[in-house]
Design a protein around this nucleic acid. Structure first.
Lengths: 190, 190
DNA sequence: TTACTGATTGACCAGTTAATCAATCACTGA
DNA sequence: TCAGTGATTGATTAACTGGTCAATCAGTAA
């Protein structure tokens, strides 16, 4: 009987949508539950309290992103192709859309008061960094770490900018932008 | 009698500090007022409602930043020096500190529901962009716009990362990081 | 049938908070 | 002195919200 996991997933998705729609963590459990088609009491029954619902929503988003990245990397052959695949996967529609990004932004706010949220975001950052370094090192040697820092920072910055201007910035242009930066960095290191 | 402007400034600063301390916009007017040493009613007397107090706080932060940038640019001679000064000014302690950055992050959240907040942040982004392009163009020609996009994005990204890990990233290292990226971009365009 | 378990909810509560308002207080100009 | 004005506040309210709980419902194993 997978009713529990189904309800949980529905609530988590509703939470993400509600945060995205409202653009804020200042959403009520009742609104989330109503969006999921259940009562607020059920949300408490499954998650205990509001914060744990939020954290589950974060894990969900990060899991989606992680799966996307892993799949893209598995498909790519060679360091250069893997780097491009990694960057491309970071701006896939399922992640790089208004709802997900508005939620993403608010997870950074959540991380200001929730150590677990902070930990989760750090895991994301570290994984991105190590992925970049792994394929950068054979191409650029000692510079790899510094370059990864800059490329990773740029990716995060584009996420932030998308939160402000969804129009005028789509997945393709963002990908192209980061790829240019990568080319210049690799060129300079060669 | 500049009591009004003084009280307003005190309240605005208290708001920034409170947002920074709490790491969220979910702060009460009473707490802000108490931090400023007045009653909450006075905050409503001067600002009308909570959002207008927030917007004034935003304008204050952006004004400080703008003044810092203008002063740095006035001191610099030559395009290269001006670019370095601009980047350096972006990571000055008065802007690049936990309180200011936590507030900054939350202004992005505010922008999700307040058109005026969105407008203010866009003004900041456009000004940064045009400042970069202005001194990039003589050095890199047609590439200037694209490079400015990447450098601007990187700066924003470092702000976001600082919001997550204040330790392990200070003004100097952030400045150095962006300057390296700038060097590589200019080198590639030459 | 019967007993049991998990899913689900409506009603409720206690606490919080934005905003209001009538009432002082301090000062100034006439 | 006196009237007028803006600064300031304590008290209050109306609305909202996280969380609890007792009760019901649906399914299932014995």
């Amino acid at each position: 009987m997978g009713i529990e996991v189904r309800r949980k997933r529905e609530l988590v998705i509703a939470a993400i949508e509600e945060i995205g729609a409202q653009g804020s963590l200042d959403v009520t459990v009742s609104k989330i539950a109503r969006r999921a088609g259940v009562s607020s009491a059920l949300a408490f029954h499954y998650f205990g309290d509001k914060d744990r619902l939020f954290l589950s929503a974060m894990r969900y988003v990060l899991t989606i992103y992680g799966a996307e990245v892993r799949a893209a990397l598995a498909r790519a052959e060679g360091h250069d192709a893997r780097l491009r695949a990694l960057i491309h996967a970071s701006f896939t529609p399922s992640n790089f859309c208004t709802t997900a990004i508005a939620a993403w932004l608010n997870f950074y706010v959540l991380a200001q008061r929730s150590p677990e949220a902070k930990r989760l975001l750090r895991v994301y950052q570290r994984r991105l960094h190590s992925n970049l370094v792994h394929d950068l090192k054979p191409l650029t040697g000692a510079e790899a770490t510094a370059i990864a820092e800059r490329i990773g920072g740029l990716i995060d910055g584009l996420y932030l900018r998308f939160a402000l201007t969804p129009a005028g910035l789509n997945g393709e242009s963002a990908t192209a932008l980061v790829l240019s930066a990568l080319d210049h960095e690799i060129g300079a290191a060669a």
